[in-house]
Amino acid sequence: MLGDGILKGLAETARNFFGSYVSRDRLTTIQYPEQRDPQIEAARSFPFLVFDGADWQQGLRCVSCQICEKECPPKCIFIEKSKDKKPDAVGKPQFYPVRFDIDISVCMSCQICVEVCPFDAIKMDVDYDLSTDDRFGGLLLDRQRLAKSNEHYNKIHPTEAAAVDAALAEERAKAKAAAEAKASAAAKAATEAKAAAVANPAPAPQPAAGESQ
């Protein structure tokens, strides 16, 4: 008959209407600011800079190599290199960024900066409620606002961060071993030089030159 489809549809919506009052699990709404869905690990929003230790300025892993700045497709990263050097995550003296800005109103969350960074210094964050009433300044994140601790990184992307940490630890161990070897070699050379100096004090500079080779 004409119209029975309409009646069927009306019955369906009525069932939904009353059902939503009877059974709570019909309602899929999440009351957003108070309730949130658990974050999945692969979630990503905008990049942030990882730092180790307690002091973000000292611990920044970024060495200001500017690869990410060049690779970023919409060109929303701006880096200014430092004149002096500070030890990086592994302990080697490196440049550091005196300015590192990301305009997240331009960033398209492509993660390319993360892919290209050779120092595991930039990673993707998961924050999404970033609305602000200042659409220029509020969305241009500077060094300080971008810096987040390694613990934060471990919390939001545990698996990935663990792998990064392991690799870094290995490198640090290598660097440490190298430094130790160097130090012991230096110490040995020093003692040898001393011994030589004691043996024949007259031509002192010769063993010193040999040590440097």
Partner: peptide, 10 residues
């Protein structure tokens, strides 16, 4: 409200 409830929203 009514439309929401029919679509199982609040």
């Amino acid at each position: 409200k009514g439309l929401g409830r029919m679509q199982n929203r609040l």
